[in-house]
Design a protein around this nucleic acid. Structure first.
Lengths: 194, 194
DNA sequence: AGTCTAGGTCAACGCCCGTTGGCCCCTGCC
DNA sequence: GGCAGGGGCCAACGGGCGTTGACCTAGACT
């Protein structure tokens, strides 16, 4: 038996480079192919190692996905920006994050067809988005609803732009997308009622 | 050789019931499982026939999906409703359609992980949504952008509500969702600029 | 009544998948 | 310099997949 996991502060292992290569290849494949078509064999090939190594380090395909889909949105503290700019800041941050890290695309593609992936997305929503949104909500009891509305608009743009690639959405400069979406998100965050 | 297709006006075939059962089972499976996990064997089992019949009538799994994903959004003529209600009408119609026919969910789930499915969604956008939106756009050259924005909001709500099932979005009464989204869509349809 | 064809079943094919177990080699330690 | 153990490869497994072709069967037409 050999250790498959170490506390984050543990001594570096000789296999760390391989582990990282596997994770990177996995994120790429999950992001572009979804869960079922992202095969362990293809991921291993991308990482330049044998498929059995993936099993050794991550136990199972589901375990690999769990490790590859760990993600920090790094949401800004919305209480620290001018109240009327919260919407623009949030939209800009999300789109930027989506373009710089393929993990979000992996989460989205897997979340849509795989129950475990959907659960991951719900956790991301509850643990990261909802609290960040609650920080600028006028009414605590509506915070969940507001967060869901915000996410619906941002998620929809991400699907249109990065996944389905509707020409007008995919071709739109990011600044233009932010300009259109910001007032919407601002309203969801702070408007008294619909 | 035997005919696999007949002109829409053709005489009814003895196999029409079977063909319909296959299509219904296929839509159900594609909607709940996505393309890869919706197996021909499972669809045939649901339809109460042998898997080879599916191949006989639809040629290939891709052909089956093409047939099962034919869809008419039945979008209303937006020029016929009061200008300021276009947003509410459009949102309400989409959510209703999403709940009454699982084909839309099948399209969405497959579109996210399958290239052919994504192409289908783009065709739906271009052939049905874009023209309907153009009917109320003040500026023809911006119609495509406006349609994409509208779709991004509606698609995002559908993903949140029906696919990922974020609790606040999934639990929200449809009327409340419409009330929140309507002003957004209205603005995308008619506002001069962001 | 006899024939022909469309509707349907069955068994198999080849392929690829996730996963396993055995084996080798290299490295760091005593 | 031996040796333990982690890093790595290889070959195989059982199973499920899409797809095929041979084979029955029952109805419609003449």
């Amino acid at each position: 038996m050999q250790p498959t996991e170490t506390a984050p502060g543990g001594r570096p292992r000789r296999s760390d480079a391989t582990r990282a290569a596997i994770l990177e290849a996995a994120r790429e494949r999950f992001a572009s192919d979804g869960y079922e078509r992202a095969t362990i064999r293809a991921i291993a090939r991308d990482a330049g190692i044998d498929p059995s190594m993936v099993m050794r380090y991550y136990g199972t395909k589901e375990g690999l996905f769990a490790a590859a889909s760990e993600f920090d949105l790094r949401l800004p503290d919305l209480a620290a920006v001018p109240r009327e700019e919260a919407g623009a800041v949030l939209v800009g941050h999300f789109l930027e994050r989506w373009e710089e890290d393929e993990t979000l695309n992996a989460l989205l593609r897997v979340g849509v067809t795989n129950p475990a992936g959907a659960e991951r997305m719900r956790a991301l929503f509850q643990e990261q988005v909802a609290p960040a949104v609650a920080a600028v909500c006028p009414d605590p009891e509506l915070a969940g609803t507001r967060a869901a509305l915000v996410v619906s608009q941002i998620l929809g743009m991400a699907v249109s732009r990065y996944v389905l690639r509707f020409p007008p959405a995919a071709g739109m400069p990011r600044a233009e997308a932010v300009a259109w979406l910001a007032p919407t998100v601002q309203r969801y965050l702070t408007a008294e009622s619909p």
